[in-house]
Amino acid sequence: MESRQEKQVRSLKRLIIAGTTLNDIMQTTAALKNIDAHGPHGPVYYMAFSGIAVAYCRIFDETNYGLGSIGKKYEKFPDDSEHANTHADLLEGRRTAFAHYSPAQAANLLRNAKDIQDHQKVEMIVNLGGDVGFRAKIILWKTKNLRKIYDLCAFQDERIRSDAKKLVEHLGGDKVYAPGTYTIGESFP
């Protein structure tokens, strides 16, 4: 049976991994601001958004590095914030990515009927030489959502850092640690 301290160490590890993931997502959203979603790097933009959704949701999953979810607390947001909507969109985006890009599921990310109809269209392109190409519409989050995702991750990271700091102080007790690197669960606490 796991001791109370072992449970707290596992909680601390979860929070640290979650914070690291959120910071990676914030860096990715900052880099994506420079990519034209409909230009030659559009596929990079789409794939990065899929990765963001999967990475963000992993910290809420019970299989998070075998450590479990960071907890329901981080799924609740102030009433006046966009965070709840962005969180829900990322969860839906992850479901879409894991559904092997199901057009029906992807359409759930769209907000109006015209966008949903346009998403279902598949185009055939014939060039002057007679070559045929195809293009299927893919769901892209709007570039304005990059800021919302960044803000959500910053909000979550702030809460996680606060909780992790409290756990570190509790686990460390009165012991003073010299400057250096400590491995959680081994050299700390």
Rank of each mutant, 00 (worst) to 15 (best):
N127F: 08
A107G: 07
K144G: 11
S11C: 05
H83L: 08
K76Q: 14
G51I: 00
Y101W: 07
Y65E: 06
I52M: 12
L167N: 02
A136G: 12
Y46Q: 12
A88G: 05
A136T: 07
R4A: 06
K121H: 07
D118Y: 04
Y182G: 02
A88I: 10
V9S: 04
L140H: 11
K137S: 10
D118G: 08
N64I: 03
V168I: 15
A178C: 03
N127G: 09
I35K: 04
A164N: 03
Q8R: 15
N112C: 13
R111I: 11
M47E: 14
G51D: 04
R14I: 02
I116H: 01
E75L: 12
K142S: 11
Y177H: 07
L32G: 04
C153S: 00
I17C: 10
Q5S: 12
N85C: 07
E92V: 12
E75N: 14
Y45S: 14
Y182E: 01
A37Y: 06
A106Q: 06
V54H: 09
E186R: 15
Y74W: 00
T28E: 13
M47Q: 15
G51Q: 12
Y46V: 03
E75G: 14
K72D: 15
D115A: 13
V168G: 13
W141L: 08
G180F: 02
D24F: 07
G51C: 07
E6Q: 07
A18R: 01
I125C: 02
N64M: 03
P78W: 05
L171S: 04
I184T: 02
F60H: 05
Y74S: 01
A104C: 04
F77Y: 09
I52K: 13
K72P: 09
A113G: 05
I116C: 00
R161I: 04
Y150A: 11
V126K: 14
S69A: 04
Y101R: 11
A37K: 14
N108P: 06
P179C: 02
G19P: 03
R10F: 06
G51P: 09
G129T: 14
F188R: 10
L146H: 08
S81D: 03
L22Q: 01
M124E: 13
H119G: 12
T96V: 13
E2V: 03
G173Y: 01
R161S: 12
R4M: 06
P103T: 01
F98M: 09
I149W: 12
H83Q: 14
A37T: 07
K144F: 12
A55L: 08
P179T: 06
R95G: 11
D174F: 14
L91T: 06
G71I: 00
D151Q: 15
L67M: 02
Q105C: 08
R10I: 05
N85T: 10
E123T: 10
D79L: 07
L22G: 01
S11L: 09
P78R: 07
V54R: 07
I25N: 08
L152S: 03
F134H: 13
T86C: 06
A178G: 06
S187R: 09
N64G: 03
